[in-house]
Design a protein around this nucleic acid. Sequence first.
DNA 1: CTTCACCTTGACCATACGGTCAGGAAATGA
DNA 2: TCATTTCCTGACCGTATGGTCAAGGTGAAG
Lengths: 215, 215
Amino acid sequence: MSGDAQISRLKPGRRTNIRRENERAILDAAEKVFAEAGFGGATMQLIADMAGLPKANLHYYFATKEDLYRKVVQQIFEIWLDAASSFDDAPGPVEGIGAYIDAKMDISRTHPHGSKVWASEVMHGAPVIQDYLETTLRDWTNGRIAVIQRWIDEGKMRPVNPRHLLYMLWATTQHYADFGHQIQTLNNGKPLSDKQWEEAKASVKDMVLRGIGAI
Amino acid sequence: MSGDAQISRLKPGRRTNIRRENERAILDAAEKVFAEAGFGGATMQLIADMAGLPKANLHYYFATKEDLYRKVVQQIFEIWLDAASSFDDAPGPVEGIGAYIDAKMDISRTHPHGSKVWASEVMHGAPVIQDYLETTLRDWTNGRIAVIQRWIDEGKMRPVNPRHLLYMLWATTQHYADFGHQIQTLNNGKPLSDKQWEEAKASVKDMVLRGIGAI
DNA sequence: CTTCACCTTGACCATACGGTCAGGAAATGA
DNA sequence: TCATTTCCTGACCGTATGGTCAAGGTGAAG
């Protein structure tokens, strides 16, 4: 890739650039391989080939396979939390939950690999991100539960269990990434089109928002 | 060994019994190990230890790791389809979908390992059960879509997209198994109690059935 | 040009894994 | 009793994998 004319003049220098670009290539390749083969099934050789680097070079940037995997999971967690902001600054559930569903459905489409890695990590007992679950995720969850409860108290939606509503949101939106292969198979082997994705988002929002009495 | 007076054990044939019992022990251990470590991360040695048998004995009953894995997945698929019958013979969505949610939530609680193996298999592109997806699952899905459409035509529920309703049902119910660890962490590290499971089932049914206008 | 910090990589190593096999034990039937 | 089938298992093997290392390349600063 060219066009780094202005980037090459950055203060950290060319060297730092090489590092950043290689780390990015490796992380992108790793995310895909970990998603498709699982941690145990992924090999450093495969990731190296996909990143276009010799295997020994991976170990120059990432000490161990676990280290690389940890970085991939953390990266996903960042994206994950960004979508969370859709929830905030919303006057009510229609806007807040609606935007959250939109954001998470978009992530399922644009970052299916990341979603799968996250799912796999949690399914295997969250060996590397357990602390995140117990701190960041727990805090975020409790915060959103409070927001939902406030909406309920304000009569903007029915009195549903906020926690199970969140689980339903996570489950349903991530399903389109994690079980994308199954969905594609049931769609005559073809990926969902732009139109079908809009239909999916609309369906999910419609059923959820009506389910909680926000419409 | 002391000579027990139990004759009942010999009735169906001792040989067949030994085979059946060992195959069961191996399959149970394999389901758990595959769920917790993934196919690539699982080792025959670990499965053997958990089943209480020497590794070489596994290969006496199951030729290869793939063969054992395939049997585990098929076994899950059977349980899966059994719950599907909840859908049939129902006069309307409240009974049909309500019973289906109950059945799938129960499976998530009693067979969490199986659910995870299934999820992992699909996430990795369904390498061994692709044919099931294209035949049995596709047929079942189309059949249920027809049932849901009939209910819609009969005015028993709102005109939602039946396909996305099914995806939501699968996603939400299986989430309690696949992401059970996350749910447990957010539940102060403790598994959901009987009461909490009832609350979960009630919440899901409530939100879904209202979401489709069946209540 | 020299220096020096950073980057690159082929070759190599120890280990762990899936799978094999031969020989023996135990159950069954004649 | 003996013969036959089924079951059991320690020891072994080839391979693939994660990881190491030493030697060499590269570019910018002095």
